[in-house]
Write a protein that binds this DNA or RNA. Structure first.
Lengths: 344, 344
DNA sequence: TCCCCTCCCGGCAACGTTCCCGACAACGAT
DNA sequence: ATCGTTGTCGGGAACGTTGCCGGGAGGGGA
């Protein structure tokens, strides 16, 4: 691993390290020929500045940390693609951590990333996070943070979200218009921003169409791995009701597939006995049985927007900026799970 | 971002930095009381050693780089979960990069990770990589690399793979035993290890059951995004044959969903007109239409094994080790896409 | 001739940490 | 009293880079 340093170049060319450094940065106070000499030699020896030394010097790492609940989820992995494409072009390095829906791991990851001197953080909250102290502290210390998807109300900074109210309204409206009366909503814990927003859209649609809101048709579940049974239990409760729902609207990727599995296991015909519309970016929605109607978020664009805002924050820290919340429209992809056209 | 350093502690306690450093490392040559004093003060002030300074000092970063074709793929994201769980416990930090099936990006990512001084690399080759020079060079310089899934024959190091031959044999055998005669195989470019191994298993099963191998039933496609049309074209060629196949065996996640989409678009009944078995870790296989028979790889375990081997290599570099190739058995999950039982 | 200014370039410190090399006191042994 | 030992600690260098300061050579103007 003998990497060449500025010192090596200086020694080889009989110059000082300062001169070499400035020559490489194309400083005006270095003779043109000297610059050429240095740059050609550096090129020849394949010199690459040591980013660690640079980080130590001016405590900047040209890297940003991303904390998400989990990677194995289409919405988040698409979002990461968006983040990476932009960050890469702007010379930033992306470090990804998963909270696995655990508050403790979220805190641990945050601390780790900060000790690694990331220049900023991109965060989507874990479903078990109620205490935001670890982020508040960092923001007070001046570390730029941009939240996306699951964002905290209590913290003021840039945020990037989908128009959850609209997406949820549109989905619910669609179910109503296709004749459903008893629409259940399975969603995340109530202290998540996406939960309240989607719940609100759901309620508003019911209200606008004169359907009474029934709390017993709403179930709150965690997303996390071990808690998948929670999802199943909630579904079972719904199915066991005196008047079970005739449609279900799960509010996330994980919940959607969970619901589908339970319905399939109980041999419930979709959409005949139960319509379903998922708030999900799952890639194979049209290959499902039946093809799944879905509220799709522009995940890639959301990732791009988030990282752009973050980098703006990093590179212009002085500017006391108006923090903004970018909202992206979702799109409703109507398929058979909610309409029941042909059905192979 | 005023973080406390060893110097601050030294100044506050009227000691030298050396003493503080040794006290914190619990060195035997420091007075017990002094140690206690230092450690308590450090604890109180929430001192955390600066990993960047440490990296600079002994050019180790306690971090490992992962280069994979893409994250938005169940096999790889499960694998990453395995990698992270182990690495985290062993005090290593995981940096993930996607090659997006591009040779250029693979090289760029490799260089970047190396310049960031990762202690080792975990790599699954892009489908367009034929030149391995960038990895060979690093290995000569002493950087530990472990390959997984798509591994190069030409490089000697630890490797972690699925038993692709077996998985492919078993899938093909299953199709034969359920009465299929003309089994097509859609796979990756031939210079990928997984391609040749899976192809070999496929051929062997045909041979063992007395079915002649027909090259025109094998199609080679790239995985990458823009090249999805390639997959579609290959499928169409198969369907347009004089004697089209009665079963299809795609060799990866992406290819499997691609094939399913084409079949659906052409209104081909599965499994009546065409059976399908996918070499895929897709999470919703049983929710597909129809539920998909799949060769599943123990992705998480493979990730764990790979990172364990890598860290062993990193931490015991002197030991001239016998390089080993760990092979994991796949499991065949039989569902309706290949059997055609009930079919809602 | 003297002075000042411009053009180049080198020396040094600093970022945070550890390691090597000493230094000095106290103490027992000779 | 002298010497080596042990127990504690400090000083300095080093990792790679950049910024500040300073300095010499050469040229132009008074």
């Amino acid at each position: 691993m003998e990497t060449i340093t500025i010192k090596d170049i200086a020694r080889a060319l009989n110059l000082s390290t300062s001169t070499v450094s400035r020559a490489l940065r194309n400083s005006y106070e270095i003779n043109t020929e000297t610059k050429k000499l240095v740059m050609e030699y550096a090129e020849k020896m394949n010199y690459r500045p040591n980013p660690i030394a640079l980080s130590l010097r001016d405590s900047k790492s040209k890297s940003i940390g991303v904390i998400i609940p989990e990677i194995a989820n289409n919405f988040f992995s698409q979002l990461i693609n968006g983040i990476e494409s932009i960050a890469y072009n702007l010379g930033y390095h992306v470090v990804i951590f998963q909270s696995h829906e655990s508050y403790e791991r979220e805190v641990a990851n945050t601390n780790y990333l900060v000790s690694r001197k990331v220049d900023g953080l991109l965060v989507s909250l874990s479903s078990l996070t109620t205490n935001l102290h670890h982020f508040e502290e960092l923001m007070e210390k001046g570390l730029p943070i941009v939240f996306f998807d699951r964002v905290p109300n209590e913290i003021e900074t840039h945020k990037v979200v989908a128009d959850n109210f609209f997406g949820s309204y549109e989905a619910t409206e669609h179910l109503i218009k296709t004749g459903r009366k008893r629409i259940a909503h399975i969603t995340s814990p109530i202290y998540l921003s996406i939960t309240t927003e989607r719940l609100a859209g759901y309620k508003k649609a019911l209200e606008d169409y004169g359907i009474a809101f029934d709390e017993s048709y709403v179930k709150y579940c965690h997303h996390g791995g071990k808690l998948a049974s929670e999802n199943e239990a909630a579904m079972q409760e719904l199915l066991d009701m005196a008047e079970p729902p005739d449609a279900i609207f799960p509010a996330s990727d994980r919940l959607t597939t969970g619901c589908l599995a339970v319905l399939q296991k109980n041999n419930i015909r979709i959409p005949d006995d139960m319509a379903i519309v998922g708030f999900t970016n799952i890639g194979v929605a049209e290959l499902l049985n039946p093809p799944l109607t879905a509220v799709v978020q522009p995940a890639m664009e959301m990732g791009q927007q988030a990282v752009e805002l973050l980098i703006k924050l990093i590179e212009h820290p002085k500017k006391t900026i108006e923090y903004e919340t970018k909202s992206f429209r979702t799109s409703l992809m109507i398929r058979e799970s909610s309409t029941g056209k042909v059905h192979a």
